[in-house]
């Protein structure tokens, strides 16, 4: 009977596949990325290496010596409380990340993780960050999402374009998004200033583009302002998915239409906006195998790191970049995703 290798599906469920099946899925995953992103394929050597990583023995695998990378976070210091239900303050969480978990950096973030909410409590949030900065050695970020959806009625000041568009009220829908960008940039830059004033090292614009191209534009414009007004505060822009969803479709940054951009083009705009780090994201498809997902991910990510002038940190969290979409992550495929991202995808951090 032909040997079958243990791996998982994108939702984390266990599956056994033959060499032929794994190689076929790697090929198909790569082809999907090539088709969508118009990027180059992996070389034969890289494809073979990816197969070796998927099938190598051991529960947890690690990178080759010398290939260790650093890590940044999104809402990291809050997760011990929110995800594990352990009521620990965020400054203590940051110390736990530094002295127990060996983290290279972490961000302080509010559990209602968006800049619109944070604006009203920005100075209080800054106080927590200030306390944490006194007690930690590693770089600390403040982090949240631009989350343009929060600016629509009934939660915010502008009309909801998700309602207007299906009604055919296109002009109003586009205007609503443009108005939301202005509100978001104001809120984000206000929060950034409070964090810069207490000594933050970094500022995380997480899941940028979650509400579409206007959301991504808000992150770029805010980054541009922050790096100009508070150059001591360094910005990381993390993406929301492998392409920027075109909810508007005509918004441009640096003469480039933002909608539809894949990571290798997203990173160029992020660089132009003045960010220090780009957090690249490729979504995990729950219904496809890990070999399919990771091949697709690495094809996109390698195309991104090939052209990036700034460090690229691949988001290695639940449901993205080959990591399964499940709350309790299996270390077997998660560690394989990390190894592939670093050794073949050439990322500068996770």
């Amino acid at each position: 009977m032909e040997k079958k290798y243990f791996t998982r599906m994108g939702d984390g469920s266990m599956v056994y596949m033959t060499e032929e099946e794994i190689k076929a899925d790697i090929q198909l995953g790569m082809e999907d990325a090539i088709l969508r992103g118009k990027v180059d394929p992996l070389t034969e050597e890289e494809t073979q290496k990816l197969y070796d990583i998927v099938t190598m023995s051991g529960i947890i695998v690690g990178v080759e010596p010398g290939m260790q990378v650093v890590s940044s976070n999104d809402s990291g210091s809050d997760k011990i409380s929110t995800k594990c239900g352990i009521p620990v303050t965020r400054d203590v969480n940051a110390m736990i990340h530094e002295r127990v978990l060996g983290a290279d950096s972490v961000d302080i973030g509010n559990s209602d993780y968006n800049y619109k909410t944070v604006k009203g409590i920005a100075k209080r949030e800054a106080t927590i960050l200030k306390q944490a900065l006194r007690n930690t050695t590693m770089p600390l970020f403040y982090g949240a999402m631009p989350n343009l959806g929060f600016y629509t009625k009934p939660d915010g000041p502008v009309e909801n374009w998700a309602v207007l568009l299906p009604e055919g009220r296109i002009k109003e829908a586009l205007q609503a998004q443009e108005d939301a960008v202005v509100h978001a940039v104001n809120d984000i830059t206000y929060v950034a200033k409070q964090m810069a004033d207490v000594g933050a090292d970094g500022f995380q614009l997480d899941t940028s583009g979650a509400a579409g191209d206007a959301d991504f534009l808000a992150a770029l414009l805010a980054c541009e302002k922050i790096t100009k007004n508070n150059p001591e505060l360094k910005v990381e822009i993390g993406a929301a998915g492998e392409f920027v969803l075109g909810m508007h479709g005509k918004l441009k940054y640096d003469d480039q239409i933002i909608a539809g951009l894949y990571p290798h083009k997203q990173v160029k705009l992020v660089e132009k906006a003045g960010a220090s780090i780009f957090g690249a994201v490729v979504n995990t498809n729950c219904n496809m195998s890990f070999p399919w997902n990771i091949a697709r991910v690495i094809t996109f990510i390698k195309a991104c790191t090939d052209v990036a002038q700034i460090p690229v940190h691949a988001n290695a969290g639940m449901g993205v970049n080959g990591i399964p979409m499940c709350e309790n992550l299996p270390s077997d495929v998660s560690s394989r995703a990390d190894k592939a991202l670093i050794e073949i995808g050439k990322v500068d951090g996770l």
């Binding site: 650093v70 590693m138 770089p139 360094k234 460090p311 500068d348 951090g349």
Partner: peptide, 23 residues
Amino acid sequence: MGGARTAGDMVMRLQLDKKMKIN
């Protein structure tokens, strides 16, 4: 990279401050 157990925190600082790639 291990943070303050090794030198991960400092390497991270250089990525932020000078936009240096990992190596």
